[in-house]
């Protein structure tokens, strides 16, 4: 306890009090939980043991970044979820496991080469893949299996060399597989009709060497975010329909019998009916 200086109280729960504190040596801000020992005769409460277990697990887990895990709340805020082990409840049994495939598309190349130790770089790679997918409206590296996944990446970034990826020689599966050499394809060709600033940002994430990928903090200072179209305030974002289910008719395509004999107004489709179907609106 001497290592920490208490700055204030954050909250109080059934099992203890949580304090805001500072680790004196490193200056790091931490949360400290003081657990009440109510039943002294049974030692450390199992609640506390399980909380510690849960915290260790959170520390262990890299979040699984992919479009399916990105949610937009009704207030327009982006939420990162992890449905890693959850499944969509679906009547068509065969679709249940489809997300497994999806995860692979965002997997960093070092993971595909069997890296045991990895860092936040795997998330930055996933960010690059998601960004590219947003620009292109289709996944950048849709590999059908792990080997093909590597092929997809190598085809675009070019076969890695000691120069482009110094750490590759240390990866467990480096020697197990070799690919035919091919040069990199410019990202402009992979993500066509994209402003140069966006391409430039994409280049910052899709780098073989994990250490060289642009950090999230630095990425936010990239010119892309300061050039037109400027980022929208979250209140301006098109948000999911409030109150759960959208009206039923939106699920069906608007059924209108267009006819040149009818007055023009009768042929104009109500734009709200089209929202679910036309991406341009």
């Amino acid at each position: 306890m001497e290592q920490y200086s208490i700055l204030g109280r954050i909250g109080e729960g059934a099992h203890g009090i949580v304090f805001k504190a500072k680790h004196v040596e490193t200056g790091e801000t931490v949360a400290l939980k003081k657990v009440a020992l109510r039943k002294l005769e049974d030692g450390i409460p199992n609640q506390a043991l399980r909380e510690i277990k849960a915290l260790q697990e959170i520390e262990d887990n890299q979040c699984d970044l992919k479009p399916a895990n990105l949610l937009i709340s009704s207030s327009g805020h982006l939420k990162i979820a992890d449905f890693g082990l959850a499944r969509l409840f679906s009547e068509q049994g065969e679709r249940l496991y489809s997300h497994q495939v999806a995860t692979r598309w965002y997997r960093a190349p070092e993971l595909l080469y069997g890296a045991r130790k990895y860092d936040e770089g795997v998330d930055l790679w996933a960010v690059g893949c998601i960004f590219g997918e947003l620009l292109n409206s289709s996944p950048l590296f849709p590999g059908e299996n792990d080997i093909e996944q590597l092929c997809c990446v190598l085809r675009v970034l070019g076969t890695p060399t000691q120069d482009t990826w110094p750490e590759i020689v240390e990866l467990p599966d480096y020697n197990k597989i070799t690919f035919k050499e091919n040069p990199a394809i410019p990202l402009e060709e992979i993500v066509p009709d994209t402003p140069p600033q966006a391409i430039s940002l994409l280049y910052k994430f899709l780098v073989y060497s994990s250490k060289q990928r642009c950090s999230a903090r630095r990425a936010l200072l990239h010119p892309y975010f300061f050039s037109s179209p400027l980022p929208a305030h979250h209140s301006e974002l098109p948000i999911p329909h409030l109150g759960g289910h959208p009206p039923r008719q939106r699920l069906q395509p608007p059924s209108l019998d267009l006819s040149v004999d009818l007055p023009l107004q009768n042929n104009v489709v109500d734009p709200t009916l089209l929202q679910g179907h036309a991406t341009c609106l």
Binding site: E41, G43, I44, I52, Q56, E57
Partner: peptide, 20 residues
């Protein structure tokens, strides 16, 4: 019981609280 509780802390410390 007192010994058990004292050793509980010792064991937890040596296992670095990694119980899972």
């Amino acid at each position: 019981p007192q010994e058990l509780l004292e050793w509980e802390l010792v064991v937890l410390g040596k296992l670095k609280w990694n119980l899972a």
